[in-house]
Amino acid sequence: MMIRMAQVIGLKPEEMEEYKRLHADVWSGVLAKIHDCGIRNYSIFLREPEMLMFAYMEYHGDDWEADQAKMAADPETQRWWAINEPKQAPLDTRAEGEWWAPMEEVFHVD
């Protein structure tokens, strides 16, 4: 099964250069865990001057919740998130418990 997913979040302007630097050289263990959890074709885009980031990924797996729990339990991923999450600015309109706000797919063509 393959599911396309998109998410949005803000980025603190004063953190932009460091966030870009970190993502230009993502730790190999984090990349391996992303792959291990069934995520493929993962991209993050930045829209300036609004400082909005858009993430797109494809999930190739059978249990999103279990794969997300496995990722969240990974110590290296936890360290990565601890560095990067303070640089992000979640949307005020996100649902309770969300960090990146999911987006609805309204059109797709192959």
Rank of each mutant, 00 (worst) to 15 (best):
E18D: 14
E65H: 12
T77L: 13
C37A: 14
K20C: 14
L91V: 04
R40N: 06
E85K: 10
K87N: 08
T77N: 13
K33Y: 01
V26T: 14
D25T: 13
S28R: 12
H60M: 08
A73N: 03
F54T: 06
P49D: 05
A82L: 07
L91E: 04
G38P: 09
M103F: 07
A66R: 12
Y19W: 12
I83Q: 12
L22D: 06
V26P: 05
I34S: 05
V30A: 05
E58T: 10
V30W: 03
D25C: 14
E65G: 01
E76T: 15
W80D: 00
F45K: 01
W81E: 06
W80V: 01
A32Q: 12
P102V: 10
W64E: 08
A73R: 03
W80S: 00
E98C: 03
W27N: 09
E65D: 14
P102G: 06
L91A: 02
H60I: 06
P102Q: 01
D36S: 11
D92M: 07
A66Q: 11
W100N: 02
M103K: 09
T77P: 02
F107T: 07
S28P: 05
I83K: 14
D63E: 09
C37G: 04
I39N: 11
E58K: 05
L52R: 15
W27I: 09
S28I: 11
A89Q: 13
D74F: 11
N41Y: 04
A55Y: 03
D62M: 03
E105C: 12
D25I: 05
A32D: 13
G97R: 04
A66F: 02
G38V: 09
R94H: 04
E65V: 14
N84W: 02
R40F: 01
T93S: 15
R79T: 13
G97S: 02
V26D: 08
G29K: 11
Y19I: 06
E50G: 09
V30E: 03
G61F: 07
K33D: 02
D67M: 09
E85H: 05
G29I: 01
R94I: 10
A89G: 01
A32Y: 00
I83C: 08
R21P: 14
K70N: 12
A66H: 06
A24M: 12
P49F: 03
R47P: 06
L31P: 04
I34G: 01
I83N: 02
A72Y: 00
Y59M: 05
A32W: 01
M57W: 09
Y42P: 03
P86T: 04
W64V: 12
Y19S: 01
E65I: 11
E48V: 09
W99K: 07
D67S: 08
Y59Q: 04
K20A: 14
N84E: 11
H60D: 09
Y42F: 13
N84V: 15
I44P: 10
R79E: 14
M57I: 02
G97Q: 00
P86N: 01
A95D: 09
I39F: 15
E85F: 06
G29V: 01
D92T: 12
I83Y: 00
G29C: 05
E17C: 04
Y42E: 04
L31C: 10
W27C: 01
G61R: 07
F107K: 03
T77G: 00
R79S: 11
V26G: 03
D67V: 07
M57C: 11
N84T: 15
L52P: 07
M57D: 07
R47S: 15
